[in-house]
């Protein structure tokens, strides 16, 4: 029973991180069919910014880092992604791959390739103890903040003018533009939101891992990327569910696999991804309008 609860909390918190990442990638993908590989680098840079500013005051570091990541997201859209906006999804994918690599090695040049230890919000590492159950405060925080963010995003998308425009653009970009939705503005809002999500992810990853390295975002972006696709291309709820799906599968495999199979955990996760792609190429939880048209 004790283990079961711990596994569930574990799965939920890992899934929450993946869901936030998948949502950050999915928001942009829905509108412009761009898989933003560089999302992982947004997270990485957010973490480095926390480290650079933390000496002053932790809440200030959080705010400044978030703002910087949002600015970076908007800047990369303007410089790299806007010129290729009308190219094929594959070209845009390669572009984001290049942006990701560029940012990663920019930080190798600045901070060096070696991982740096960095303790942030150390209080979150301690567990809540309820009887025999020990649950790290961090995991609870991740799940709680994710729920709040998802609720806020849902409100934004359904109630605000920009939110409705974004959903319209995701459904049918050309039609939305014909009806007066400003393409540049909607895409900028999507990138800004994606930046906020990356900033929040950066905080949690930093607290959880305790080390920073320029390559730290890659794995996360890959998972987010996969979660977006198997969740259903372009469906935001699908991206969130896809993130939780991968989180749960990962934790269950970690738990359920016999010891000698543990090193192969990722292989099983990605084999599952291939199976989903083949069996349901439209994704597990597909939006109605996501079909590629001839």
């Amino acid at each position: 029973m004790t283990t079961a609860i711990q596994v569930i909390v574990d799965a939920l918190s890992v899934g929450s991180l993946y869901a936030l990442t998948a949502l950050g990638i999915g928001l942009i993908f829905g509108i412009m069919r761009l898989i933003n590989f560089a999302h992982g680098e947004f997270v990485m840079i957010g973490a480095y910014m926390l480290m650079a500013i933390v000496a002053q005051y932790e809440p200030l570091a959080i705010i400044v880092a978030m703002v910087l990541v949002v600015v970076l997201a908007l800047f990369s859209e303007r410089i790299a992604f806007r010129p290729v906006r009308n190219a094929s999804p594959t070209t845009m994918l390669v572009t984001s791959f290049a942006v990701s690599y560029f940012l990663q090695y920019l930080f190798v040049m600045i901070y060096g390739a070696r991982p740096k230890g960095f303790e942030f919000l150390a209080g979150l590492a301690e567990p809540f103890v309820i009887g025999t159950i020990r649950i790290p405060k961090l995991n609870v925080a991740i799940v709680a903040v994710t729920i709040v963010l998802l609720a806020g995003l849902a409100l934004f998308l359904t109630r605000s003018r920009f939110g409705v425009q974004m959903r319209a653009a995701a459904l049918n970009f050309r039609m939305a533009r014909l009806l007066g939705v400003r393409a540049d503005r909607v895409i900028a809002v999507a990138f800004a939101l994606s930046g906020i999500l990356a900033g929040v992810t950066a905080i949690f990853i930093t607290v959880q891992g305790g080390t920073l390295s320029p390559g730290m975002g890659v794995q996360l972006a890959l998972i987010g990327f996969v979660a977006t696709i198997i969740g259903g291309m372009g469906s935001l709820i699908g991206a969130v569910l896809g993130g939780y799906f991968i989180g749960v599968v990962t934790v269950l495999l970690q738990f359920g696999l016999p010891l000698e199979m543990r090193p192969y955990r990722e292989a099983f996760v990605f084999a599952a991804v291939i199976l989903v792609l083949l069996a349901r190429p439209q994704g597990l939880f597909r939006g109605a309008e996501a079909r590629e048209r001839v």
Partner: peptide
Amino acid sequence: SGIGAAIGTFSWLTI
């Protein structure tokens, strides 16, 4: 094809 192929082949690489 397209994005699906990119992810499928990448998954294979990871495996």
